[in-house]
Write a protein that binds this DNA or RNA. Sequence first.
RNA 1: GGGCGCUUAGCUCAGCGGUAGAGCACUCGCCUUACAAGCGAGGGGUCACUGGUUCGAACCCAGUAGCGCCCA
Length: 863
Amino acid sequence: MTTPELPTQYAPADVETHSYQRWVAEGYFTADVGSDREPYTIVLPPPNVTGVLHIGHALDHSIQDALTRRARMRGLETLWLPGMDHAGIATQNVVERELAKEGLSRHDLGREAFVERVWRWKEESGGRILGQMVKLGDGVDWSRERFTMDEGLSRAVQTIFKRLFDDGLIYRAERIINWCPRCLTALSDIEVDHSEDEGELVSIRYGEGEASIVVATTRAETMLGDTAVAVHPSDERYAHLVGTTVEVPLTGRRIPVVADEHVDPEFGTGAVKVTPAHDINDFEIGRRHGLPSLVILDERGVITAHGPFEGLDRFEARPAVVAALRAEGRIVAERRPYLHSVGHCSRCKTVVEPRLSLQWFVNVQPLAKAAGDAVRDGRTRIHPPELAKRYFDWVDDMHDWCISRQLWWGHRIPVWYGPDGETVCVGPDEEPPPGYVQDPDVLDTWFSSGLWPFSTLGWPDRTADLARFYPTTVLVTGYDILFFWVARMMMFGLYAMDGVPPFQTVALHGIVRDQYGKKMSKSTGNAVDPLDWISRYGADATRFTLLRGASPGSDVAISEDWAAGSRNFCNKIWNATRFALMNGASVAAPLPAPAELTVADRWILSRLTAVTGAIDAGYDDFEFAKISDQLYHFAWDEVCDWYVELAKIQIASGGDVAERTRLVLGHVFDALLRLLHPLVPFVTEELWRALTGGDSVMKAAWPSPSEAYADRPAEEEIAALQELITEVRRFRADQGLKPGQRVAARLSLTGTALPAHEPAIRTLLRLDEPSEGFTATARLALGAGEIELDTAGTIDVAAERKRLEKDLAGARKEAAQAAGKLGNEQFMAKAPDEVVAKVRARALQADADIARLEGQLAALPAA
RNA sequence: GGGCGCUUAGCUCAGCGGUAGAGCACUCGCCUUACAAGCGAGGGGUCACUGGUUCGAACCCAGUAGCGCCCA
């Protein structure tokens, strides 16, 4: 076989694009719905159409790509389905900003033209992330790519809406919802981010004299809409006031003092102002006491109440109201800054305004119950299991879900209103009655992404894909969206698919952090751009860095140094395989039987078997950090540092041994590249093709541990060899002998298991045969054997003494510890036999070491 | 306010009842023909603190402190 010339350094850029294009062209990523193989399905959590690939995607995708590549190699019919969601608010914002540059608003265009414009934007500049996924190497089935706004998925949305509506699980009601005064739309609870912000706490006196009462608030301006003051029923301080009325300052309105269980007597003065139209808790109090709701803010957060504050923005109105109150002597206390929790729009960061309005809701109770039960009874497994509790906390106490959005971009609510207030919900193939008008609102984006695991497979049609690939095998996503997205897919999946949950397993990972464990963000400037890393270190190195840190449910810390380390690892694999190729490594013949192989061969094959088993176990639990570490250690420390060095000697010896060594090398590297492929697909593809002449490592079978090659004695023998070699190297280093300097030595290895390894020992340690005038200047006692060296001059006695004394101290400590245990009656009586045996063995070894070291020290010339 | 988690080498983490580990960083010596993106050797930790259980605790239990996350 002719071996192609490989450069001495791996250059990712030279192979990545080409390999990816070939994989796509060959259809390797395309799932075959007609095969009779067992299916393995993952749906990609759809990124936003506005999104670009960030490091969190890179982690999420690396895990999914590893899982699906391995599944394919294991012979499963594997589908990894890609796509994007339409990101209602985010996308609308992007296009509105674009319009603003032209001096236009969406209202200038009108709804239809605006939506057309968004589609145009989507075609031209949306979905940049898809091209970036290619750079990472994502093996997704592009022939099945979907978009939440495409025709099929829109049909799924309308179908499930109609079904839920008919089942009475969707309703319209006037409620306090989260409102973004900038986006001008309702938000669900999960689209609101809470943060501890600096505000003010102002205490205001309502009423006069004996009948006055002081309330504390962070939102003084809302007093214009107060319709009560509430106190706790058992609060004696205010008992005499309950049932009376007090005057709201600045307005002249009189409002009642009510008693309500939900007031915290410990907070502030124990009395709170009640603004039912602008606070969720106050709304509830208002409902319990039949209070009116006084709306004082418009949709943009501007004061509408008549008077001097009318027309002021809520944040301008606040100091203005406080100033006016102060002028009237109403301010009793002020705390500024006052830290308290404030909700922000997750899209534009504007402070959210609780707002009373008419919206559509999903009654989640029965759906959430089913979603919880599916995990409780094990139909869906959450991994790691500790995180299941968070899921239960969420689904077992879920609030009804506000699904209407006052946007233009999205799935329009399929409800039409008749001239006399009739309401009709229209299914996908139905027509609304003539003269009816459609509800102007659109649905929350999560409403459509909640259908993702089955709408993408063709639901509501009973497609072949749906029958074959649903339920999906595993969902891979961050724990940060466990509640909303995962819970919603669970609810909808169970509801739409006759109680079959959408995932067998939900595998959760953490978020990516910097090397100090800090969250990455643009503002702190510690964010890593995966595309930057891909261009500088390669896609494989980028992936490996992330996977190497990925333990289930835990955050991943990364840094530039570690990316460089991963690149070095890829390069190491590259060069080691290059060495194998240059030395005729081959998979042209089967691996010889163990009896025909050297101890070194049997050792590396035994280790390969053990590692293969460990990798499989790692995949079962999504332990990518462990998988990566196992492979890193095996490839670098065992294959490269030891086996390759021993193989060089075997090959140099020629004959059958050399031929068999070439086969072992070939098979070991073949297996290693296959095992590594799901993690680092590009470098392994290039090398595997060169090594085996095969078409693609993607099509190679996943290695299985071969017990026939498990070989405990060989592992022990090589361990002893490594120990001996390391010991002599240590001597050489301490004596300042240059690595290349050859030293004459006499080896006495009888009594050890190592005589057969003398050639290896001589080569690796650069020890020459003793010649005529050999005079030993140093004597190393190593277990039962001895190595005498002629260092051709005086040796550094002080360095040698230091080294031996250090070893002796260690051995004495060891002996003392073991003796202590063996002399402890309780230990001898209660510890298990194998532990006692182990300690006995340690004591014997330590005693032998002490004798040996003392002998060597005594033999040293006086300093 | 409620709940969860974490605290092990300079950094990031593994180990979860029987002699403290890895990667990176660090020190020393080396361009030894697969690889200097490398090779060889080495230094470095009262496993947060205080008690308890146990023959034996980084590991189990209780408490304390600090940090982080989620929910309200």
